[in-house]
Computed example of a mutant assay.
Amino acid sequence: MMETLEGAKLCFPQLNSSCRKTMRPYSESMVTYIILSSISVLTVTLNLLVIISISHFKQLHTPTNFLLLSLAVSDFFVGLLMSFQVALIDGCWFLGDLMCVVYTVLDYIITSSSVGTMVLISADRYVAICDPLHYPSEVTQKRVKVCICMCWMCSAFCHGLMLKDNLQQPGRYNSCFGECVIVIDYAAGITDLVLSFIVPITVIVVLYIRVFVVAVFQARAMRSHIAAVTLQKSVKVTAKKSEMKAARTLGVVIVVFLICTCPYFCVTLTGPDTLLNASSAAFVICLFYFNSCLNPLIYAFCYPWFRKSIKLIVTLQILQPNSCETNIL
């Protein structure tokens, strides 16, 4: 009987060198499983709707929306990767050493690309609000696509290089079967933290503070001269209001991003000596992943085109001929 109980605590009961399972109360494990599974399914579904919307409807093919598409793609993959976190609830990895490394590399690439896309979104809003006359000529679809591709390629190259040793010998740092351990060189880890978090977050905050200051100034200027606006100028004012609304919406996205990701990166920054228990660590990780689920919800509240496109997708009207030409705005 004792041997059976002892075997039940092992990831691989048939192996003497198996890792031990993390023993938690059944209720806690089930709640964690349900929460993570729900967030994963919701994240994948909502971001898939964003991807289909922007990809399908031609009216949505704008530089800003392509940046949102890149963010939705990274968030979509985050939702898929969360299923691996669900599998790790009891502390056992059953998918082999190679999949462990692949999962970690993808996690790093997607996270870094998401942060890079946020920087591009901030730069897009900075040019749109602070230099609106040059925005149409400077921020073109082609340039935005090139920037997005460069963002993903640089992220893949840098993190592939950083995790090269782990890729060459998967499982080299595991102490037992059923473990998923990745070791990164200290200097490489610090460099990654600076380039993937500290520098991008600083750029995002600085750019959006500038956008906020200019937006407030422009709003006051428009209110003070509203009586003298001609029909021709009113078109420009409407365009400016549209840009300001987009800036506010994307500002909400960025603020939510900072709230959800900063605790995770701060824990990473403080290192292994940080005073966190298992529950606190789990909360920080869940908050980090939950951000990917929140972005489409923000679009649903702030963008009428997203609500309209969801209706067309759910009712399968996008399968009709020439549905991509539908007036969605």
Rank of each mutant, 00 (worst) to 15 (best):
L42D: 08
L42K: 02
L42M: 14
L46N: 15
L48S: 15
V50H: 10
I51D: 04
I54Y: 02
S55Y: 06
H56Q: 07
H56Y: 15
F57E: 03
K58S: 06
Q59V: 02
H61I: 02
T62V: 00
T62W: 02
T62N: 01
P63L: 09
F66R: 04
F66A: 01
F66D: 10
L67A: 08
L67Q: 11
L68W: 03
L68E: 04
L69V: 05
L69Q: 06
L69W: 13
L71W: 05
S74N: 11
S74C: 10
F76V: 00
F76K: 00
V78T: 12
G79H: 00
G79R: 01
L80K: 01
L80H: 05
L80R: 03
M82V: 01
V86H: 10
V86F: 11
A87L: 09
A87Q: 07
A87E: 12
I89G: 09
D90K: 08
G91N: 13
G91H: 00
C92Q: 13
C92R: 14
W93G: 08
F94D: 07
F94S: 13
L95P: 00
L98Q: 04
L98M: 04
M99A: 12
M99L: 15
C100V: 12
C100F: 10
V102A: 08
V102I: 15
Y103E: 09
Y103T: 06
T104R: 11
T104N: 14
T104P: 01
V105Q: 04
V105F: 12
L106A: 09
L106K: 00
L106Y: 01
D107W: 13
Y108N: 02
Y108D: 04
I110G: 00
I110K: 00
S112N: 14
G116R: 03
G116I: 05
T117L: 04
M118T: 14
V119N: 08
V119I: 12
V119A: 10
L120N: 05
L120K: 03
R125S: 11
R125Y: 04
Y126T: 04
V127Q: 05
A128V: 05
A128C: 06
C130P: 03
C130R: 06
P132E: 12
L133G: 02
L133I: 13
P136E: 11
P136K: 05
E138N: 02
T140C: 00
Q141M: 15
K142V: 13
K142G: 08
K142Y: 10
